[in-house]
Design a protein around this nucleic acid. Structure first.
Length: 136
RNA sequence: CCAGUCGGUCGGACGACCGCGCGGACAGGGGGCGAAAGCCCGUCCGGGAGGAAAGUCCGGGCUCCACGAAAACACGGUGCCGGGUAACGCCCGGCGAGGGUGACCUUAGGGAAAGUGCCACAGAGAUCGAACCGCCCCGGCGCGCCGGGGUAAGGGUGAAAAGGUGGUGCGGGCGUAAGCCCUGCCUGUUUUCGGGCUAGUCGUCCGGGUUGGUUGCAUGAGGCGUCCGGCAACGGCCGUCCCAGAUGAAUGGUCGUCGGGCGGGAAACCGCUCACAGAACCCGGCUUACAGACCGACUGGCCUU
């Protein structure tokens, strides 16, 4: 899993598709083709947990659970050409982990299928019904 | 046995699977790149949050920046005596003052015959020279009051109530510096702001702007143990150990068993729940937050022998 590390990347992704779920808000944006950022062919993920969520211990735990859910399930189903940012919300602290994983998988797929880029002619355009691409 | 005081320690344990970042090893031997040095992946091993990592309130060091030297003044801090320490506003031991039956606890304690101030409410009275009620004495009368003098035992108000010195005369003085003040002592600055180095890019005659990378960086006033000195804080000798180093930021995620607490139950057991809180240059303190557990010394009370 590649991480987003530049503030600039986060600002860009914040303008993308927004998919709310119980434990987080997913923001996602297709990277422009042919740029230097597109060198790595993997989807990239970033995590944001604001101070409103709690103290440092609470924020660490929310971020680490989201990160683990992405590592276990989300990264495999994500469109390689997109960047994702998960904004943590309070239920991510103690909701069942299986539910959190399911939400991550669902949100990542929805984000890839809705509002496809105007020139993004990849096969992910309408990949919602089929799910056989989850090979680890 | 109950209640309490002081000091100290710990602050969930074990296991399974899947991960993250750091350090080391990989000789002839794995995969990729490269002409090579080497780099990346991989395999194995080691270690990977706290007692407060917190607040950023003091004291220092590293680094960086600035800076001729000395003195004086200003601002700020600090203040009984002695000791400890690299140093401190910290710690220890005394004295004084206050509190507790006691073990013990608290402590803001330099200087008031330099100057200046000392509020509001209540109260008779609050730094001035003070008598409201009460009590005592004297005088008056229309016999219960009025006037004068004395008295600080009592009442009442308030956060706080002093009025004393053997007597007399004369002269002077006493409270408060958790008010200003006076006086002794201390005092370059920065430490996440930015700087150095380097690369890309934009622009100019020069100065520059912008976006990245990199650097400080982990052996220290260090931990643990025996012994010795000291009432103690602490110091000394010897032995032994190496104990996090990230930079959108690793130190984890999930599950199981046990353990603690609460509730239900006669019990087996069932349900819920597990404190405060996350390193960011590093040390020494202080302060604040904190479920619970354990150890030691001591005090008061009760019961039994």
């Amino acid at each position: 899993m590649q991480r987003l590390k530049k503030r600039n990347d986060y600002v860009k992704v914040a303008r993308g598709v927004r998919t709310p779920r119980r434990g987080f808000l997913l923001q996602s944006l297709r990277r422009p083709d042919g740029t230097e950022d597109g060198a790595g062919a993997d989807a990239r993920f970033g995590f944001t947990v604001t101070k409103k969520m709690g103290n440092a211990v609470v924020r660490n735990r929310i971020r680490r659970r989201l990160k683990e859910a992405v590592r276990l399930a989300g990264a495999a189903v994500a469109d390689p050409g997109r960047d994702f940012v998960l904004v943590g919300r309070r239920p991510a602290l103690d909701m069942p982990f299986a539910d959190l994983v399911a939400d991550v998988v669902g949100a990542v797929r929805v984000a890839a299928s809705t509002k496809a880029g105007p020139r993004g002619g990849k096969g992910a355009l309408k990949a919602a019904p089929s799910e056989e691409e989850t090979g680890p």
